[in-house]
């Protein structure tokens, strides 16, 4: 399997503090990889190491199956990035900001107009960035990251500080990029709802450790709701449900129905009533992705 990004046992220490511990990140080609974690979990530190802005204390980084330490320039030529707060030169206009970068990247000048068009900043191209709103600066940052038509786009909290319409705009933009250009995207966020709407794969970090890394579908599986039954003599009731071919779990005197379509629930209850168990409560337990995320990040273990 070809990985666009693969880190092995990546660690970063600041003095005695460990910001990133033994991180194994794997991103396949064409994926939108959601890099999730609460603030201070080590997301930005990891991204800085991926871009060579910071040296790793230990571990290796492979991008495009090349060692970052050995072929940094060749790798960075194919990478676009936006790290944390938007970066810009306040004394230059939007166009000039991109021109300063373009001179180094060596792409044609028309590309500047193209990327300004993509992030819809064409109208303010000749205004000083100093006076831009945070959202505009953020969009300029995205324009800058697209300048070299990268194969790997690394966006660190790209929707930070944007208003809802700005967030939707950026989200749609990010979603359409891999489809149009085969780009691979690494996008970090502390908001699961953000990632949920864009990513195809999710990596969750907390306190510097990767605690979950799989497709978004697998993560959603955890979010599936369950129907809880409180009944008399619950263990026996559970066994009789199983005996009748109804899938269920038993936990602390509560029966959990894993199939929760109306018909299945009605059938389960009918069975129990028929066999003479008293039903005290039928509850639906909803676990949002947020709940799972919180549970994962606070308990620090994989469910």
């Amino acid at each position: 399997m070809e990985y666009v990004v693969q880190t092995t046992n990546l660690s970063k220490r600041f003095g005695k503090e460990s910001a990133v511990i033994g991180l194994d990140m794997k991103i396949r080609k064409g994926e939108i990889y959601g890099f999730l974690g609460p603030n201070g979990a080590g997301k930005t530190t990891t991204i800085r190491m991926l871009l060579g802005l910071m040296k790793a204390s230990s571990g290796t980084i492979q991008i495009f199956e090349k060692d970052l330490n050995k072929e940094k320039i060749n790798i960075l030529k194919r990478v676009g990035s936006l790290v944390e707060n938007p970066s810009y030169y306040p004394h230059l206009t939007a166009y000039e900001n991109l021109e300063a970068l373009r001179k180094i990247l060596g792409v044609p000048k028309t590309r500047i107009h193209e990327v300004l068009e993509i992030v819809r900043l064409t109208e303010v191209a000749n205004k000083k960035v100093k006076g831009f709103s945070l959202g505009m600066k953020q969009r300029l940052g995205i324009a800058a990251s697209l300048l070299n038509s990268p194969e790997l786009l690394i966006l660190d909290e790209p929707t930070n500080g944007l208003d809802p319409s700005g967030i939707i705009e950026i989200r749609n933009l990010i979603k359409q990029l891999p489809a149009e250009t085969g780009m691979t995207i690494l996008i970090s966020s502390h908001l699961l709802t953000e990632i949920d709407q864009m990513a195809t794969t999710v990596g969750i970090v907390t306190k510097g450790k990767m605690i979950y890394q799989d497709s978004i579908e697998s993560l959603r599986m955890y979010a599936q709701q369950k129907v809880l039954l409180k009944v008399s003599d619950s263990e026996q009731a559970w066994r009789s449900l199983l005996g009748n071919g109804i899938k269920a779990d038993w936990e602390d005197g509560i029966i959990l129905l894993s199939e929760h379509s109306d018909g299945k629930v009605a059938k389960a209850i009918h069975t129990l009533v028929h066999e003479g168990y008293s039903i005290y409560r039928v509850e639906e337990e909803k676990r949002s992705l947020e709940d799972i995320f919180l549970q994962m990040t606070t308990r620090e273990k994989v469910i």
Binding site: L51, G52, L53, K72, I73, N74, L76, K77, V79, S81, V83, E84, N85, P86, S87, Y88, Y89, P90, H91, L101, I104, L105, A144
Partner: peptide
């Protein structure tokens, strides 16, 4: 100064430059 002001170093050094 303009590199320090608003993350210019980050952006510059993430480009293909040594």
């Amino acid at each position: 100064r303009y590199e320090h002001q608003a993350g210019g170093w980050k952006q510059l050094l993430a480009l293909p430059v040594t």
